[in-house]
Amino acid sequence: MKPDRRPYRRESEDSRREALIAATQALVAEGGPRAATVRAIAERAGVTPGLIRHYFGSKDELSRAAYRQLIDGMTDKGADALSGVGAAPEERLAAFVAASLRPPVVDAGAVGLWAGYLHTMRADPALLAAHERGYLRYRDVLQGLIAALGRPGVAAAQMRQEAIACNAVIDGLWLEGGVLPHGFAPGELVRIGLASVGAILGTDLMAHGTFIPEIGKAPAGEGETR
C-alpha cells in the first residue's frame, strides 16, 4: 500500500501561497504596486505565473491577500504578547502597546509596503475594505484592553474615542520608527508609546511595564539623534 502523501502536498501548497504573498509584499515595498507584475511575482517566488491564478484567482486578489497579511500581522503580534504576561489589565495593555512599537512590527519594509498600497486604496474598494477591517480589528482589541482597566465613570463612548487617539499615537510612532529607524534610541519608541498612551488614559503604564525589556534602559543622550 502506498503511503498517503496528502499532508505533504497540503504543506507544499501552503508554502507556495506564502511564497507568492511574500514575493508580492517585497515587490510592492520596493517599487509600489506597479512593480508587482505577474511575471515579477512568479520569478521572485520561484514558481510559474499560472500558480497565481490557481491559488488566488487573480493578481488583484493576491495583492489584497498580501495587504491583509500585513495589517493582520500587526494585531497578531500584539495579541501574541498578551500570552506572556499576567492578568493585570495595565500589564496587558502595556504589553500590547510595546509589541506594536518594536520589530518585527516596526520595520522599514512594512512601512514601504503600507505606503505602496495607500495611493491605490481609494480606487480599489476591496482593498479599502480590507484596510478598514484590519484597522477596526486592531482598534477593537485596543479598546477591549482599555475597557479592562475598569476606570469608574468612563463610558463606552469615551473608551472608543480613547482607543482612536491611542491608535493614532501608535500609528504615528510606527510610521516614524519604520521610516527613520536611526532617529530613535533602542527602546525609545516603546517608552514614548507607553508614556503617551498612559497620559491619554490617566494610567501610568510605565510603572506596570517593568517586565518589558525597554523600560528603564534609556541610554544617555536619548533623543539627541533627532
Rank of each mutant, 00 (worst) to 15 (best):
M74Y: 05
A79G: 05
A79W: 06
A79M: 09
D80I: 06
L82W: 09
L82D: 04
G84R: 15
G84I: 03
V85P: 00
A87V: 15
E90K: 15
E91P: 04
R92H: 13
R92Y: 12
A94G: 15
A95M: 04
V97I: 08
A98M: 00
V105Y: 00
V106F: 00
V106R: 00
D107I: 08
A108Y: 00
G109N: 10
V111K: 01
G112H: 06
G112Q: 09
L113F: 08
A115M: 15
Y117Q: 03
L118R: 10
H119T: 14
T120F: 02
A123N: 12
D124C: 11
A126Y: 06
A130H: 03
A130Q: 03
A130V: 14
H131V: 02
E132Q: 12
E132A: 13
R133I: 10
G134W: 07
G134L: 05
G134N: 11
Y135W: 11
Y135H: 14
R137S: 11
R139W: 05
V141P: 02
G144N: 13
G144Y: 13
G144C: 10
L145F: 05
I146W: 08
I146L: 07
G150W: 07
R151Y: 09
P152T: 15
V154Q: 08
A155N: 09
A156I: 13
A157P: 10
A157G: 11
A157N: 14
M159T: 12
R160N: 13
A163R: 03
I164W: 03
A165F: 10
A165W: 04
C166N: 00
N167W: 02
N167P: 01
V169E: 09
V169K: 06
V169N: 06
I170V: 15
D171Q: 12
G172E: 08
G172M: 11
L173P: 01
W174I: 00
L175H: 07
L175G: 02
E176F: 10
G177P: 09
G177K: 02
